[in-house]
C-alpha cells in the first residue's frame, strides 16, 4: 500500500465531507427568504402551540439555536461558526419537532439503520455471487436463460414494491412476520434471547426487500466469471492439475468478485437511500423514518443532520473499501483510483 494512494483516498473522503456540510449550509441560505424567514413560520407554529409569543429577535436566537446559524453575522462568520459547532461540539443544531439535539436523535437511530443496511448488503451480494457464478458455469444452459429472465424481472421491480408484496403475502396473509416496528411490544431490551429474536423477526422483511438492490450484481458477476473462464491463467491452472475446488474459489471466484468489491461498498449509499422509503413502509424507526418525519414538518435542522450522517456513513464505507482493496488485489496498491 503506498502512501500516495492512502493520502489521495483520505483526501477524497475529506473533500466529500466538506462538500456535504457546505451544501447543507448553502441550502439554509438558498431557502426562499433565507433561513430566518423560512423557518419563522415553523418556529412560530411550535411556539404558539405551546402558548407563547415571540418577537423577531427571539426568532433569530432560535434560528441560531436550531440551525447553528447566527443570522446577523456576516456569512463567512456564520460558515466558520457552523463548522466550529459541528467539529468541536458535535452539534448539528436542534430539532424543531423533537426539541432535542439532532445529534442525540440520530445517534439513537443509527444502529438500527446500519443493522438493516449491512445485513441486506451482505445477503444481497452473497446471493448475487452464488447466482452469478452458477449462471456463468452453466452459461447458455436452460438454467442460465431462465435465471437471466428472472433477473430482468427483479431488476425491474423497485424495492418498495417488493416490500409491499412481502407485507401482503408473508406478513398479512400468512402472518409469519410483523408488518412493522423494530421490536415486539413489551419485550425488554437487553442481551437476552427474546429481545434478539424479536429484533431479527422485525428486521427480516426490511432486510429482504433491501437486499434486492444487490441482486443486479449477479449479472455483472456472471460477466466477470465468464471473462475469467477465458483467461490464460485459468487454462494453465487446469493443465496444472489443480483441484477443481481451488480453481472455482481461488481462481474464478476471487478474480470475478474483485472488480465488484468497491462497488459493494458504494452500494451502501444505495441501501441507505432506500431506507428513507422502506423504513416508512415498515414503520421501522431508523434514520430513514427520522428523515421522513422531518420532511413532513419541514424540520430543516434534522433534515440537514440526517443528510450529513448518511453521507458520512457512505464516506466511511467507501474509505474502508479503498483502503482494504490494496490487501485484496495486489495490483491496486499502486493506485489508479476506483475504476
Amino acid at each position: 500500500m503506498n502512501l500516495n494512494y492512502l493520502t489521495r483516498r483520505l483526501g477524497q473522503a475529506v473533500i466529500t465531507f466538506w462538500a456535504t456540510v457546505t451544501l447543507t449550509f448553502a441550502l439554509y441560505h438558498m431557502m426562499p427568504g433565507g433561513p430566518v424567514e423560512s423557518m419563522q413560520n415553523i418556529i412560530l407554529q411550535q411556539v404558539t402551540t405551546s402558548g407563547g409569543s415571540v418577537d423577531l429577535e427571539q426568532i433569530e436566537q432560535m434560528v441560531a439555536l436550531y440551525a447553528n446559524i447566527q443570522p446577523n453575522d456576516p456569512v463567512y462568520v456564520q460558515y466558520i461558526d457552523y463548522w466550529r459547532q459541528l467539529l468541536f461540539e458535535f452539534s448539528m443544531g436542534q430539532s424543531f419537532s423533537h426539541q432535542e439535539p439532532v445529534t442525540t436523535l440520530i445517534a439513537e437511530r443509527v444502529p438500527w439503520s446500519m443493522f438493516v443496511s449491512v445485513y441486506s448488503l451482505v445477503i444481497g451480494y452473497t446471493a448475487s455471487i452464488l447466482l452469478g457464478s452458477a449462471m456463468a458455469f452453466k452459461e447458455k444452459s436452460r438454467f442460465d436463460s431462465i435465471m437471466s429472465s428472472i433477473m430482468v424481472a427483479l431488476q425491474s421491480t423497485p424495492y418498495y414494491i417488493v416490500a409491499l408484496l412481502l407485507i401482503y403475502s408473508v406478513a398479512l396473509r400468512l402472518g409469519w412476520f410483523p408488518t412493522g416496528g423494530r421490536v415486539g411490544t413489551g419485550v425488554e431490551a437487553g442481551f437476552n434471547l427474546e429481545f434478539m429474536t424479536s429484533v431479527v423477526h422485525h428486521a427480516a422483511l426490511p432486510i429482504l426487500s433491501t437486499s434486492i438492490l444487490g441482486i443486479a450484481g449477479a449479472i455483472s458477476l456472471r460477466g466477470n466469471a465468464i471473462r475469467v473462464l477465458g483467461e490464460d491463467y485459468l487454462r494453465v491452472a487446469e493443465l496444472r492439475g489443480l483441484r477443481p475446488t481451488r480453481i472455482a474459489t481461488e481462481y474464478v471466484g476471487r478474480n470475478a468478485i474483485l472488480p465488484m468489491y468497491t462497488r459493494f461498498m458504494i452500494g451502501i449509499a444505495g441501501v441507505l437511500s432506500s431506507s428513507v422509503i422502506l423504513e416508512q413502509i415498515f414503520s421501522y424507526p431508523g434514520m430513514g423514518l427520522l428523515m421522513y418525519n422531518a420532511i413532513n414538518i419541514r424540520d430543516y435542522p434534522l433534515l440537514m443532520g440526517t443528510l450529513i450522517i448518511f453521507t458520512s456513513i457512505t464516506i466511511i464505507g467507501i474509505l474502508i473499501a479503498d483502503l482494504t482493496y490494496g490487501y485484496i488485489d495486489p495490483r491496486a496498491s499502486g493506485g489508479g483510483g476506483t475504476e
Binding site: E231, D232, Y233, R235, V236, A237, E238, L239, R240, G241, L242, R243, P244, E250, Y251, R254, N255, L258, I328, D329, P330, R331
Partner: peptide, 24 residues
Amino acid sequence: LRRFRWDRVAMVFQGAMSSFNPVK
C-alpha cells in the same frame, strides 16, 4: 487426468504474460 497432468506431462504455452493468477 488431473493427477496425470503436470506430474507426467506439463505444458508451457504462449500466454505466459497471463499464465499466473494475478492475485497470487
